[in-house]
Design a protein around this nucleic acid. Structure first.
Length: 838
RNA sequence: GCGGGUGUGGCGGAAUGGUAGACGCCGGGGACUUAAAAUCCCCUGAGCUUUGCUCGUGUGGGUUCGAGUCCCACCACCCGCACCA
């Protein structure tokens, strides 16, 4: 190939993108006999523009997908749009556009942006959750779940976001505020649809154990979220004749109970007929729920005057209303053991209640005083009648046995996980396919009436749900009795949409949500890549949905994502100035960056360089993918996304960095252009380096260690550049084209064509590795004396210990270091080092 | 508070218990050029009495012939959860 022209991404990128599209290079064939590989990145919300975080996410997946294809796999690498959600309605309210039009325009724009990056995607499987051919199937699945007993309705207190005028899931309430609007969340009672995720709590928890290729962090977060705890539920007999069930995880400490406490909204509390009680309850409800407030919140109580009889001692324990007891966990009432629970300790201290010790380090220390705080640790049971001397575990079993014997209660497992409320009082979501009939109650819509589509003629100038206000949409005949009835006007939480899209990608029949056989071919997803922000919600819901479908016999697979990878964010330094007490931020393109300072282009004055933080519009530290692709081409951008930072860590964006990447693209191009097909001669050392690099890069990509693969490619490039012309060098150049192909596919195709190789490099198999070339025949041996490096020497691989020892002792530098001292010991690690101990 | 993670040059980071700093960025010097850009070459952890030596992976201990890596204690930062009985 002879060309002294520069690589021109502006023309090459589009040309090869078209070539792949025409050849349908990345179309997944489910009938292929090859082993299947399903590579999936979390599909984007069509907010309007692709941001740099998407670019990093999809570049990683793309390298893996292309590598998998090269290594003989049939790859499914699809893309779609998580297209329902509130921003579309917000845009509708602000700009007077229709959410559908807004969303579809965004999709079109973002799709064009993704195409510019040359991702190896099977666009024939593209889907958008806002289209009836997706959400209609979701409605069918929802009805199926209903018929399987996994969907129910109940009136419940919900988190009401007064700004977005909608219900939020617990997970969407952060510090008492709506996750999107930031508004203070109110409590309201509404009839809501729920999915019975709690039926699967045990399974979802146990299933985590099988997910070895998930980050421990995510598994732990899910484990905590599911929150299994084992304990005892039993009832106290109250002085007013009623029974009060309480829940405890420490039944072993029952002899240490000195009072009983109920939540402010507990029926026992509500029944107290006194002004003070009502005031106290109101006070509890007013208490803030932010992290800071909770941390400093004082333990407060109100003595009800009622007493509870201790089931073993018969003592009368006072019953308090306490602000730290939660109604929605356990039974909303506790037996308080101040000696061994910190909250109870603080409460007892404040109200001067007894703090008995019932667990001690040893029997002898049964009288030990508390040192200002509760002791929640292990030990031996003391001051507890028949439990004395037992271990905590034995005592737990014994108390549960006795309570069960008395018929007063039983051992019980309590979960933190709540059922998943999916109703949203919103327009831009999947209509819930049910009909309310005065005569027949709640009736599922007939399957043949699906999809129940959203009406187009809606207005967004009034807050609240447009479906509820629409003149005709909700009025239908009851499918059962034919009488007048109304549609459900709530729509589904968008997390439902993303709970099964990976099944729809695998197969897209018109008449049903998915084809079980096709799903079996592709699932589980071999590698799922996305942000850590979905560690709990999306990933737990998708796991639940998959298990629910498996439970119903619809699919075989129980866990949808075999391996999960959570990539780090793209960050950037900030530029700002203080202006009259306010901080004004400047965008990177308004700045000219010098070695140790940054100047504002507009006035030439200096601005402050701030911390490297996550890109955000408010700090203006964003870079736009389109702009940088315009300047450097897709391959340089992709290369940057893979370089330097390990993929799970944050990647600091820098102008210098992307320029370095761009330089490397052109440097490679010059090397490729110098390829000499007719070169003769062997260069054994270069052959070794080439084969070692191929093997190492393969390992790195499989481990998603892209930064290491990049470093190795730099090394090989340097070695090839330095090598003299030979057949080995030409072979190394061809190999290099293939090694960079997953990362810089446009440059690689251009070079592949330039060196007259057949077909597309995207279709070429991964270079073969000759195992014989992976081992060196000479090794460098480190020689240490007193644990420090004194000299290095070159020896044939596999040299005998004695020979290495002799060579080491022959070294002048080593002799000088030993300086006549007596040699006590010589440690020889073959092919590695010799350590002389004196 | 509980749980988890991270700490290595000016920066991003490499390093199966075995030559710390691969590779990239920044910086310095040089070549080419009328000049610049581009490109190429060299240097680039700190210190010193510079054929070489000493120190150096958050801090302090320990195990080992040998520790960035293993163990113990601590410090700092980041993330998650949070009156969950």
């Amino acid at each position: 190939m002879s060309s002294d022209t520069r690589f021109d991404p502006a023309s090459a990128d589009a040309r090869w993108q078209n070539a792949w599209e025409e050849a349908q290079t990345f179309r997944a064939d489910s009938d292929s006999p090859k082993p299947k590989s399903y590579v999936l990145e979390m599909f984007p919300y069509p907010s309007g523009r692709i941001h740099i975080g998407h670019v990093r996410n999809y570049t990683m997946g793309d390298v893996l997908a292309r590598y998998k294809k090269a290594t003989g796999h049939e790859v499914l690498h699809p893309m779609g749009w998580d297209a329902f959600g509130m921003p579309a309605e917000n845009a509708a309210m602000e700009k007077g556009v229709h959410p559908g039009g807004w969303t579809r325009d965004n999709i079109e724009h973002m799709k064009a942006q993704l195409k510019r990056l040359g991702f190896a995607l099977d666009w024939s499987r593209e889907l958008a959750t806002c289209e009836p051919d997706y959400y209609g199937h979701e409605q069918a699945l929802f009805i199926d779940l209903y018929e399987a007993g996994l969907v129910y309705r109940k009136e419940s207190e919900v988190n009401w976001d007064p700004v977005d005028m909608t219900v939020l899931a617990n997970e969407q309430v952060i510090d008492g505020k709506g996750w999107r609007s930031g508004a203070e969340v109110e409590k309201r009672k509404l009839n809501q649809w729920f999915l019975k995720i709690t039926d699967f709590a045990e399974e979802l928890l146990e299933g985590l154990g099988s997910l070895e290729n998930w980050p421990d962090k995510v598994r732990l977060m899910q484990e905590n979220w599911i929150g299994k705890s084992k304990g005892l539920e039993f009832s106290f007999d109250l002085s007013n004749g009623e029974k009060l069930p309480v829940y405890t995880t420490r039944p072993d400490t029952i002899f240490g109970a000195s009072f009983v406490a109920v939540a402010a909204d507990h029926p026992v509390a509500q029944a107290i007929d006194s002004e003070e009680a009502r005031q106290f309850i109101a006070l509890c409800k007013r208490g803030g729920t932010t992290a800071a407030e909770l941390e400093t919140a004082e333990k407060l109580g109100f003595d009800t005057g009622i007493t509870a009889k201790h089931p073993f001692t018969g003592a009368d324990l006072p019953v308090y209303i306490a602000n730290f007891v939660l109604m929605d966990y356990g039974t909303g009432a506790i037996m308080a053991v101040p000696g061994h629970d910190q909250r109870d300790f603080e409460f007892a201290t404040k109200y001067d209640l007894a703090i008995p010790r019932v667990v001690a380090p040893s029997v002898e220390e049964a009288g030990k005083r508390f040192d200002g705080e509760a002791e929640a640790g292990e030990g031996v049971i003391v001051n507890s009648d028949f439990l004395d001397g037992m271990s905590v575990e034995d005592a737990k079993r014994e108390i549960i046995r006795r309570i069960e014997e008395q018929g007063r209660g039983q051992g019980k497992t309590v979960w933190r996980l709540r059922d998943w409320g999916v109703s949203r009082q919103r327009y831009w979501g999947t209509p819930i396919p049910f009909i309310h009939c005065d005569a027949c109650g709640v009736v599922p819509a007939p399957k043949e009436s699906l999809p129940i589509t959203l009406p187009e003629d809606v207005d967004f100038q009034t807050p609240g749900n447009p479906l509820l206000r629409h003149a005709t949409w909700k009025h239908v005949d009851c499918p059962k009795c034919g009488g007048k009835a109304e549609r459900e006007t709530d729509t589904l939480d968008t997390f439902v949409d993303s709970s099964w899209y990976f099944l729809r990608f695998a197969s897209q029949p018109d008449d049903r949500p998915f084809d079980a056989e096709e799903v079996a071919k592709w699932l589980p997803v071999e590698q799922y890549i996305g942000g850590i922000e979905h560690a709990i919600l999306h990933l737990l819901y998708a796991r639940f949905w998959t298990r629910a479908l498996a439970h119903m016999g619809r699919i075989e697979v129980k866990e949808p994502f075999g391996s999960l990878f959570t990539q780090g964010m793209v960050t950037h330094e900030t530029y700002s100035r203080k202006k009259g007490g306010k901080t004004v931020y400047y965008a990177p393109d308004e700045i000219s960056r010098e070695a140790d300072r940054a100047l504002l282009t507009a006035d030439g004055g200096e601005v402050e360089i701030g911390r490297v933080i996550k890109m955000s519009k408010s700090k203006k530290n964003v870079v736009d993918p389109d702009t940088i692709i315009d300047s450097y081409g897709a391959d340089a951008v992709r290369w940057f996304m893979l370089s330097d930072s390990p993929p799970e860590r944050d990647l600091p964006w820098s102008e210098a960095g992307i320029e370095g990447c761009s330089r490397f693209v052109h440097r490679l191009w010059r090397l490729f252009a110098a390829h000499d097909a007719g070169a003769q001669g062997e260069d054994k050392a270069l052959d070794r380096k080439t084969h070692q690099t191929v093997a190492a890069v393969a390992d790195d990509i499989e481990a998603l260690g892209f930064n290491k693969a990049v470093a190795r490619i730099y090394e090989l490039t340097g070695a090839v550049e330095k090598a003299a012309s030979s057949a080995s060098r030409s072979a190394a150049i061809r190999t290099l084209v293939q090694l960079v192909a997953p990362m810089m596919p446009h440059l690689a195709e251009e070079a592949w064509a330039g060196i007259s190789m057949d077909g597309l490099v995207a279709d070429a198999p991964w270079p073969e590795v000759d195992p014989a070339l992976l081992v060196e025949d000479e090794v460098t041996i480190a020689v240490q004396h007193k644990g420090k490096l004194r000299d290095t020497l070159t020896a044939p691989k596999g040299a005998a210990k004695e020979d290495l020892e002799a060579m080491a002792l022959a070294s002048e530098k080593v002799q000088r270091s030993i300086d006549g001292a007596e040699i006590r010991k010589i440690i020889v690690v073959p092919d590695r080092l010799v350590n002389i101990v004196t």
